[in-house]
């Protein structure tokens, strides 16, 4: 398998605080990877760096081993094929659920293409399919702002899938979901891995266990341990800083 994303010796500090400290990480194509770590471990900053929102002070971030991600912005990284789901569900509240999905579809994003855009039957079918997948068909014409917290999470997952990205960065997808929904999310993420590369940041250990994948533990901006969940759970340092005794 080839490498989808690699971080090498990445550092980033904010006002002297080293949010990311010599972080090196490699994600294979089609891999499902969970990233865990205590608050302030640098998980969100890591995502910001990958998506071009934050520039690292030093280090290398490579996409497909060739493209330098430190030179792109958010829109650029999205166009390369990196989709991101936020911890706090952010959907377009004053637009319908359907429109939220439609705006996310993988289509040209230039001024002219969007100004003269005409919806097609294929597009409508794709939207219907995605809404069905995230179980929001019944509320397709609702304003996204009227959805419950859990439904917004699903809508955002739907938007992420609509983008059809190569790499999905998913930040705490299970927050605010019921146990059943959490398990369904885990199933969904497992099912799309392989075709897509998926990186999940999560606190919920049951969820991580359900993902049944390689786990990276971050601490103070660098990788503390990596391996199966059982392997990292047995690591003395991990127990010390994160899992607790």
């Amino acid at each position: 398998m080839s490498v989808q994303l690699s971080l090498d010796g990445v550092c980033r500090s904010f006002d002297g605080f080293k949010a990311i400290n010599n972080l090196s990480l490699t994600i294979e194509k089609g891999e499902l990877r969970a990233v865990i770590g205590p608050n302030g471990a640098g998980k969100t900053t890591m995502m910001d760096i990958i998506t071009g929102k934050t520039r690292p002070d030093e280090g290398e971030v490579l996409w497909n081993q060739t493209v330098d991600l430190t030179k792109t912005d958010e829109a650029g990284s999205a166009r390369l094929g990196i989709g991101r789901k936020f911890q706090k569900p952010t959907v377009f509240e004053t637009q319908s659920v359907k429109t939220n999905i439609a705006l996310s579809l993988k289509e040209p994003r230039t001024i002219w293409a969007t100004l003269f855009h005409r919806s097609s039957a294929a597009e409508d079918a794709r939207i219907a399919e995605l809404l069905d997948l995230v179980k929001l068909s019944a509320v397709a014409d609702w304003m996204a702002g009227d959805l419950s917290h859990g439904q917004k999470q699903w809508l955002e997952i739907g938007m992420l899938l609509a983008q059809d990205p190569e790499l999905l960065l998913v930040d705490e997808p299970a927050a605010g979901m019921t146990d059943a929904e959490t398990m369904r999310t885990a199933d969904l993420l497992r099912s799309i891995a392989g075709k897509h590369t998926v990186v999940v940041v999560e606190h919920d250990m049951d969820f991580v266990r359900a993902l049944n994948c390689r786990v990276t533990v971050l601490h103070q901006g660098h990788v503390l341990a990596e391996g199966s969940l059982d392997h990292v759970s047995a690591n003395e340092q991990v127990i010390e800083v994160y899992l607790g005794r």
Binding site: A75, R79, R84, V91, E93, S104
Partner: peptide, 12 residues
């Protein structure tokens, strides 16, 4: 409504 979300969808 959400400028940064729009950026992350790939819109400049």
């Amino acid at each position: 409504d959400s400028e940064s979300r729009t950026r992350f969808l790939g819109y400049r």
